[in-house]
Amino acid sequence: MIRTALARAGLIAAATCAATLLTAAPAAAHGADAPNGTDYRTRVAGVTPARPDLTVRVIEAGARLELTNHTGRPVEVIGYSGEPYLRVGPDGVFENSHSPATYLNRTLVGDTALPADADPAAPPSWRRIADGTTARWHDQRALWQESTPPAEVRAAPEREHRVRDWTVPLRDGTDPLAIGGTLDWVPPPDAYTWWAVSIVGLLAVGALGLFAAASTAGARALTAVGVLLLVGGAVAVLHPVGRELDAGAQGVGGVAVGLLGGQVWALLTGLGALAAGWYTLARRPAADFVIALAGACLALFAGVANAAVFTRSVAPVPWSPGIARVMVAVVLITGVGATAAGVLRLHAAARAATRTPAPTP
């Protein structure tokens, strides 16, 4: 029995390490270089002059702008040197291969080397990059690209500051338009408070493992752990859905494609926690091992992986940053607490086996 318990504990560690290696690349691929959080809030004021069928919004925590054109006419986004950069219209989305912005905007930091033919004075050379009437791109005019904050932020980082008002020129045929917006510094939250709450919570959940191993209160404590896994799993599923919505996914189909393309492991982690919660409530054999394994995966891939929201004022989700922090705290509390509860139950089972006398022949 002791060997079985130790083998299960070892399997938990091995499975967690393997999952870490498997999930590293896909997780980083979501939204190309979408941030996990930022302290700079980008907002769009609108298009001037207004076009009812031309809409713009901020996605990926401000990392990209999204323009949707339902006017039935092609609209151009103008690059940094006044050259045509993007063309969005009924025939799809095109980029100008001669525009320096085409290359600079491929990464969030704008560090792509320019090819020899990147000449803003050259006639446009349009290359189709997407179907539909929606374009998404990084735009340095709406971002803070310096490694250090502005001087006014350094002088008073505890206050909110307007960094600048920004504009991105457009062209509708021969009519000039402009996207207008603001860029603000928002003071980050107190990360120590959120970590302290998470640690206290996970210790409390882990203590359920002691009760779950006891004969008198074990059933109720095990039920509580199962319910918490269901809650943590549901939150862990909702979080990547929110990230896809914030990245511009449209409808159920768009969210599903985004999840399968860049958030599949985060989604599977949440679904696995839901299955583990059901397994625990059903009093299935080896529930202690399932609790520990599901908790470890939940803590790592849905908790620690998103813990940047504890230190950033803007989160990459369509709800408030405060709600995002609560969600990550719930996942951490559930994940680490469930892992501790499962390991404690394995340890209690091993000790009980040593106290059980061997049957006489």
Results as ranks from 00 to 15, higher is better:
A348L: 02
L245D: 03
A275K: 03
N105A: 15
G46Y: 03
T68E: 14
I2S: 12
C297G: 10
G79W: 01
T193M: 11
I333C: 05
E152Q: 14
G303M: 11
D172Q: 09
D117M: 13
M327Q: 06
R41E: 13
L268S: 02
T20P: 10
R355M: 12
L170I: 00
A275S: 14
R106S: 09
A249N: 05
A221F: 07
L300T: 02
A219T: 09
R8G: 10
A221K: 02
V109L: 14
A18Y: 14
M1S: 15
V326D: 00
V330A: 06
V317E: 00
T112Y: 15
R220H: 11
G37N: 11
A5G: 02
T339G: 05
T42N: 09
W137R: 02
D53V: 06
V168F: 03
A204T: 10
A204L: 10
A7P: 11
S147W: 14
I333K: 07
P115G: 04
G254K: 04
V163M: 11
G62T: 00
R283G: 06
V168N: 08
S125N: 15
P176M: 06
I333F: 05
P240S: 05
T55H: 15
G10P: 07
A307W: 04
A219M: 08
W319Q: 03
A353W: 08
P361T: 13
T354N: 07
P149L: 04
G261N: 15
L203D: 10
A315N: 00
H347C: 12
P187L: 09
A18S: 13
F301Y: 06
T167I: 07
I129P: 11
A294G: 06
T16A: 15
T182D: 08
V44Q: 04
A178S: 12
T174A: 13
W265S: 08
L202T: 01
P189M: 01
F289T: 02
T23L: 07
A7I: 08
L274G: 15
T334E: 05
